[in-house]
């Protein structure tokens, strides 16, 4: 399975990769994107099976990326990993077609809770 991780923070991308590994999802290809626009392009070029995306990013936000994907007909499974964990953001994410929203700070248990059944 190929997982695309989009976050403008290189440190946070590494923490997400580390947490995936700690949660037991350690046998997957990882592709990184540094903002929403990069993620949008890499969904096209890399054909990931899952996108884990930050919300607030320069150039294109995570929600704008998700909306652009759905508008283009892409149904790639998409979840947020973001510091934006308020109820209104969760509703926005769900309405745009996100499968889940993992709020930062997270633990490996939080990852398992949201990703079991999503990651094969």
């Amino acid at each position: 399975m190929k997982i695309l991780i989009a976050d403008d923070s290189r440190v946070m991308r590494q923490i997400v990769i580390r947490t995936l590994r700690q949660a037991g999802y350690d046998d997957h290809d990882i592709v990184e994107a540094e903002d929403g626009a990069d993620a949008l392009a890499k969904v096209g070029s890399e054909q990931p099976d899952l996108v884990l995306s930050d919300w607030n990013m320069p150039n294109m936000s995570g929600i704008e990326c998700l909306q652009a994907l759905r508008a283009s007909g892409s149904a790639v499974p998409f979840g947020f990993v973001t510091s934006e964990g308020s109820p209104e953001m969760r509703e926005k994410a769900s309405n745009a077609g996100a499968l889940f929203l993992i709020a930062k700070p997270f633990t490996e248990d939080t990852f398992r809770e949201h990703l079991d059944g999503v990651i094969a």
Binding site: S9, M12, T82, S83, E84, S86, K104
Partner: peptide, 17 residues
Amino acid sequence: ADAFGEIANVVGGSIKA
């Protein structure tokens, strides 16, 4: 800047919530 900023981002996001 990346790492220290990300800590502020996570703490700030939780405070915002």
